[in-house]
Amino acid sequence: MKPKVAFFDFAGCEGDQLQIANLEEEILDLLGQVEVVSFREVMKEHSDDYDIAFIEGSCTRLQDEERLKEIRKNASLVVAIGSCATIGGINSLKNYQNMDDVKKTVYGEKASLFDTYPARPIDAVIPVDAYVHGCPMTKDEFLHVVKSLLLGKKPEIPNYPVCVECKKNENVCAFERGEFCVGPITRAGCNSCCVNEGTKCWGCRGMVDNPNENSQKEVLVKYGLSVDDAIGKFKLYFGWQGKKK
């Protein structure tokens, strides 16, 4: 019997689910292996009978925790997809601000009607079995993780930085092009896609397990970034990881 899969979204842009909807020819091969029972972005039907839950978005309200716990109860495997779900993502930028100000900025006069709390990744609320990092995640890595899970294998996600892939791809180092890059401490697995396209790494996959953050900051400053801006570089995607430490 094919495993049943369901997709869920929390605070996020749904860009990761869009990557799945955009799988094109591979989507048929994928549907040969799994049965999709819930996927709001592409279908109307919904069922709570599923084996694998893919969760996009970060948890930003207390009441989201209940829904997450419910999903965890139903699923035998929970997979976080995309930066918001895996590392808190850019939603965690608000964690550096006053929550009331945040609400006022977003909801204006109606701010009091809405709840919010510091954004966090899914595994801050429930145990997560596998991660598909990235903002958005890449189709290739999504398929890699799905195939691993279907084979009963823990997906192998690199614990080395983006520099490794950048070097293999023979990119001119972003620093040598005058860019400020956080690839040296960001978890690889994206095939250094942003640098391949001529920009820099923003850190959307989060930091490696044991980053040398001080050295990364010193490098940014050495290449001409102000100390404040160097610290700012860490807030964009490393907000939750950084605060947790």
Binding site: Y160, P161, V164, K167, I185
Partner: peptide, 13 residues
Amino acid sequence: SEECLSCGSCVLV
């Protein structure tokens, strides 16, 4: 090695 980023650039090139 204090500032080593463990990025592997030195060995990969």
